[in-house]
Amino acid sequence: MLDNFNHLVLPNINLLLRGLSVTAYVCFFAFLLAIALGSVACLVRLYVPFIRVVAIGYIEFCRATPIFVQLLWVNYVWPELFGFPKTVVGAGIIALALQSSGYLAETFRSGIEGLSKGQRDAGLAVGMTNLQIMRRIVMPQVVLVMAPSIVNQMTVVIKSSTLVSVIAIPDLMYEALKLVNTWFEPIEILTSTALMYIVAIFLISILAKRVSDHFRSKFGLAGLV
């Protein structure tokens, strides 16, 4: 087994690491886009009554569609309908972002609705505008309170990203499958791949938890949540 590991995994480690970097790239931009789309969807749902129903439709659509379907749909249907995305990587990022944005929108919404009304009142009473209150008072607290769910969503994106190999994005899973199909030795290759995912997700979770715990205890939010 160790023997197999030595001549299957190690000589190809660069290939796997290159795949991992593609995974990181796709996940990073997918998550950024998800945060942006999720914020917009959440704010529209809460504060723009006349297109609220559009936001609800969007959120429910994103959450109810399997990621696999979304990937194929964005990759094959969108270019025909909208003329973009032009690359598979673009399609992968958009599809991953779509799904996460639905969940993040709901996370942000429960964070905003959970914030006491007095926090906004205090801002209004000193003459702050709604936009200032959102930016300075509501958002920072929502991010702090919701940090665990947001981090969790980040790990979901990483795990879902293993599916982007089906539209031929050369991510870690894609490279691993290619090796498996070349050597027909799945045990070492897939085990190593799984380990790489575990380590990546573990590191991100630990780091994010450290950071959010630091701020939550500093502000005394730990007791609130």
Binding site: S116, Q119, D121, A122, A125, I137, Q141, F219, G220
Partner: peptide
């Protein structure tokens, strides 16, 4: 121009 003090203080915790 009207200062208000609330029952629940409503300080911003962050």
């Amino acid at each position: 121009e009207l200062g208000m003090v609330f029952q629940q203080f409503n300080l911003w915790p962050h």
